[in-house]
Write a protein that binds this DNA or RNA. Sequence first.
DNA 1: CTTTACAAACCAACCAGTCGGTTTTATAAA
DNA 2: TTTATAAAACCGACTGGTTGGTTTGTAAAG
Lengths: 222, 222
Amino acid sequence: MDNATRSERSRNAALEAATRIIARDGPGRLTLDAIARESGLSKGGVMHQFRTKEAVLKALLERQMDHFEEFSTRYMAKVSETSANPNLATQLATVREAATSPNSAALALVAAMVENPGLMVLPRDREMKRVEAIKAEASDPELALLRWAAARGLLLSSLFGMSPLSKDEHQRLFARLLDDDQWRPLEKPDEPLAGKSRATRGSTAKSGAAPAARAATPRKRA
Amino acid sequence: MDNATRSERSRNAALEAATRIIARDGPGRLTLDAIARESGLSKGGVMHQFRTKEAVLKALLERQMDHFEEFSTRYMAKVSETSANPNLATQLATVREAATSPNSAALALVAAMVENPGLMVLPRDREMKRVEAIKAEASDPELALLRWAAARGLLLSSLFGMSPLSKDEHQRLFARLLDDDQWRPLEKPDEPLAGKSRATRGSTAKSGAAPAARAATPRKRA
DNA sequence: CTTTACAAACCAACCAGTCGGTTTTATAAA
DNA sequence: TTTATAAAACCGACTGGTTGGTTTGTAAAG
């Protein structure tokens, strides 16, 4: 077997073993010996691919981030033409994906934090760019940020096993978060849906509650 | 010194040492030996008060939860008469408090999760009651839950050091979350601002906490 | 004098990382 | 193609240090 692909296979096996261990036994049980055992490799083999444990955590984090970045990119390509705020829509959908998929491997995050809290700058830096994009495209940046925050709240809560919500509620809330018609900005009270303002109205109203009333005039903050 | 208070003092010293360690060195550095060193007690003394490390974590968690429950109770007493949704208001304020205060000791949560993910049921069970109360008092339960979720998203993000938001943004978002006028439910699309759109919550309020100020609804709203 | 609170030495298990050695692949001269 | 040599991948025993927990001993409280 080719040398490069041999390495690739081993690295892959180690990382997959790591995610399995975290999901099954919790982040506290993730040790180099456990990875070796679970992956079928020897300790030396693992150490050859990752010089330290921190390197394993880092690779785990990056792997996870890349996976969702790919999801993001694909989703964005689909909605960038039809949505008024494609960045927000994409992030909401991505977070929902992360919360829905059996990907409890995002607990790599916790493992990383415990071992080396400094690693958290990796996801944070990526998130900053996304938040910037969301703010830039929004007519009401604060509202957009809050929708984003709500999605993250749902994700992190369920990720840490402390979500008090049922699966069904969880899903309904995400659906509503994604429905733009539910979140008309409260700005520009004197220019009601004039220009474009999204062509579809009743069509996009899927599961959520009643379709946007909106008659109510926005109210400036105190 | 009285025997009971002697124990009390030791338990307290150990738990405070533990929170100090977590805040200063991270959850990964919380060990029984470290607690003994930091608290001035001997390891034997610590082990006499807590039979296992899990017992320490559990006590830490409960202590933390009690602290915020106390904050909640006090806040609730203040707003229960003036707010239409005192439970939501209280939870938002409490979460903001948790995110704001230098109480990074809420990281006890992380420490607990690493050691024994099963401990997470403790905070979850308490949270369930609160969520029930929030739903019961809300005219638009989903919207209320989403405000709650947003607050948690902000809290957990900053707690894990991966919040991409500035302190200022953070605070502004919480302020907006707390402002009821920003979150009018989108109900009754065919009954634009007629008489009292909401106020009929009495029927839906079941066993939830806080019967609270129903008559309130001080909002003028046209 | 019995029980409780604490101290200090102690222990077995575990952990991240090292090291000498073996097998497999890569390179290239014969 | 064969052979020689180097380089990369891999193995598993070992090490120094740590961890959760135990044991033995002592002093104070009841």
